[in-house]
Amino acid sequence: MTSKTLLLRADSISRSYHSSLVLEDFSLDVAQGETTVLLGSSGAGKSTALRCLAGLEPVQSGTVTFKGKPFLAKNNRPAQASGAIGMVFQQFNLFPHLTVLENICLAPRRVRGQDKAAVEKRATDLLEKVGLAAKAGAYPFQLSGGQQQRVAIARALAMAPELVLFDEPTSALDPEYTREVLQVMRALTAEGLTSVIVTHEIAFARETADRIVYMDAGRIVEQGPAQDIFGSSHERTRRFLDQALAG
């Protein structure tokens, strides 16, 4: 654990909307190659935490550092992202006017200015990896939800991010499509992708997470190595896990 390089650190961050505090004293270390899963019921502040880690939200106090560098601009406003942190959304957010291949190639081409042929080759490899090589020319609306989410994952990976944040990637999907998306995520984490995943798929969490963070009402109730949390004797964590495992 200590030998691993620290990639991202949130140090006691808080975020409030108007006067209500939705994230309070949130601290998290993400080490390279680790899979961190955020658990908690709806409204616990998981998405807000993830958006703060992504630099999408200003924080009222605390700091987020990525590879040792403070992550937010001077005035705490989110800074321009570089593609080093990828994000996968519940609603996929694919670009509807572009084909699958164009969705994946857009950022490497326009942001990094990489060579078209090289980018397309890499995009094709990524599509192969998520099992959608045949869908390169399709538009998002022609794909099932599960396929769209797998394209979204490939799109995030195309920027070769050092960390990928997943915000409930399967919550908008029917169970049969959930399985194929989790399968892809399982393979990626096994290959050493660093990730922070918000999910309600408790079996998936138990199987893939190195580290679990359990949140409630904007605060971290408990966090630690996955086996510790699943064996936790903390009353609220226990109740949440028992309910989730039963459901």
Partner: peptide
Amino acid sequence: GQRTAAHMLGLNPVQTMRWVVLPQ
């Protein structure tokens, strides 16, 4: 969500406008 996705991919506001928002 389109702008958020573009931002996370590293597109700056002008690129986001040009390649993502304006075509739609």
